[in-house]
Design a binder for these strands. Sequence first.
DNA 1: CAGTATCCGATGCGATACTG
DNA 2: CAGTATCGCATCGGATACTG
Lengths: 240, 240
Amino acid sequence: MMRSYGQYCPVAKATEVVGDRWSLLIIREMLYGTHRFNELERGLPGIPRSLLAQRLRHLEREGVVGRCAAAAGRGTEYYLTPAGQQLQAVIDALGNWGAAWAFGEPQPQELDPVLLLWWMRRRVNFEAVQAARVVLQFDFHGRSTGSYWLVIEPPEVSVCLQPPGFDIDLRVRAELAAFYQVWFGQLALGEALRRGLVEIEGPGLLVQSFPRWFALSHFASAVRAALARTADSAPPATLA
Amino acid sequence: MMRSYGQYCPVAKATEVVGDRWSLLIIREMLYGTHRFNELERGLPGIPRSLLAQRLRHLEREGVVGRCAAAAGRGTEYYLTPAGQQLQAVIDALGNWGAAWAFGEPQPQELDPVLLLWWMRRRVNFEAVQAARVVLQFDFHGRSTGSYWLVIEPPEVSVCLQPPGFDIDLRVRAELAAFYQVWFGQLALGEALRRGLVEIEGPGLLVQSFPRWFALSHFASAVRAALARTADSAPPATLA
DNA sequence: CAGTATCCGATGCGATACTG
DNA sequence: CAGTATCGCATCGGATACTG
C-alpha cells in the first residue's frame, strides 16, 4: 500500500487511499457493475490475483469497498460503499482528461480483443436486441487475428473464447484497431462499414438493428470531442 | 515510472501519466502557482530530490509540464502546459472526495507547521493587508511547539524558520491542530479565538483586519460540507 | 469458483552524498 | 539554486501451487 505522505491535505489523503497501482482501475470496474473476484480479474488483464486480493482488502479497510456473501451462487461479492460510489467523479475526471490528452494511437499490444468484448458485454442494450438469445461471432484481423463469441441471453451476456455450440446469428468481421476506434467514438460504425473495416453478415433484420445493440464506451464523447479539437472534421455523433 | 497497464482505456492511460507516487501532488503544487524546483520540494516534504527531478522529466515527456529558463533569477522554471492545467478537474475531484471520505483526525506527524505556513503563503489577500510590510510571528503549541515567521511584502511572502530581523507586527499563538482546523474550515476563527485555541496580539487595527488577510484552503468548503453531513452542527461559512 | 501462500526477479522508492 | 549519482530496501509483478 502507498505509504503516507505525511500531509494533512485532502488530495494527499485521497491519493493514499486510491493512488496505488491498479486501485483506480479496480474501482472503475466496480463502478461499471463488476462484483466478483474472478470478473474483476478478467477486466484487469495482467493483475496478479494476490495483488487484487490485497488491494480489495486495503480498499475495504479504507471504507471504499464492502464485501458480503454472494446473493446468487457461492463465494463473496464486492460492492462499492457510498464513499466508493462517489469516486465516480474522480474516474470521470481522470477518464475525460485521459481521453483528451493521453489517448494517442494505441500500441499493438494494447488492442486486446477479449478485453474489448468484455467491455461491450456490459454495454448491451437488451431492449434493442429483442430476442431470447443472440450469438455473435467476431472475426478480428489486422495486427492480431482471432475469433471470439458473444452470447446475449437477456439479462446475461457471455464472452467466449471457444465456439459456444449454438448457431451463429451474426458474424462481425473487423479490423481490430478500427473496431476499437468505433468503440471509442473516433470512427462512426457507418463509416467503418463503408470503408470495409467492419463487415456484418447475417439476416438483414439483425444486421440492421445491430448498431443499436451496444452503447459505446462511457468516454466515447470525450474522445470524440478531443478528436474534433485536434482535426477539424469530427465524425458523426452516434454509432448508428 | 508506472509501467503500462496494456489497456487502451482513457482511465488507464491517464493513470499511466499521473498515477505515480508524488505526481499528483507535484501537479497540485504547480496548479497553486509553484514554478521552481526548490519550491516544489518545500511543498512536498519528504520527496527525494532525485525523484522530483525524475517525475518532472516524466511529466515533461508526457506533455503535462514544460520547462524554460527562469524569467527572473537564474535556473529553470517549470510550468503546466494546457494539458497540465486541465488536470485541475482531476485534483478537484480527488480533493473533494478526500475531504469527504478520507479526512479523519490528522496524525500528529501530519501537522507540519512549516507546511501550513507554506500553504498560507500562497493564499495571502494582499488587498486586505494594506501595508508595505507586515511581519507575523506564529507561536504554535500543542503536540509540536515552535515559532515561525511570515513576512508579507506585497507581492512577496516569505516563510522563515528564524526571526527575520524586522519588528514583529502581529503575534499569533495557536494550538497547531486547531489552526489546521481553521485552515480547512472545520473551525471558525472566531470560535477558535473564543475558546482560546488561537490568540492574536498586536495593534488593534491589525488584529481586526487579520481575519481577512488569508483565504482558507481551496478545499475548506468541501471539508466543511463533509463535516456538516457527519455532525448536524456546521460551523459558520467564513473565516471572519 | 474464490481466493491464499510462497517464491523470485525487477524496479520503484527513499536516504545520502556529491556537483556545476 | 538546481539538480545528479549511488545504493539498499521494500514493494510489485509474475508464476506456481495449494485450499475450501
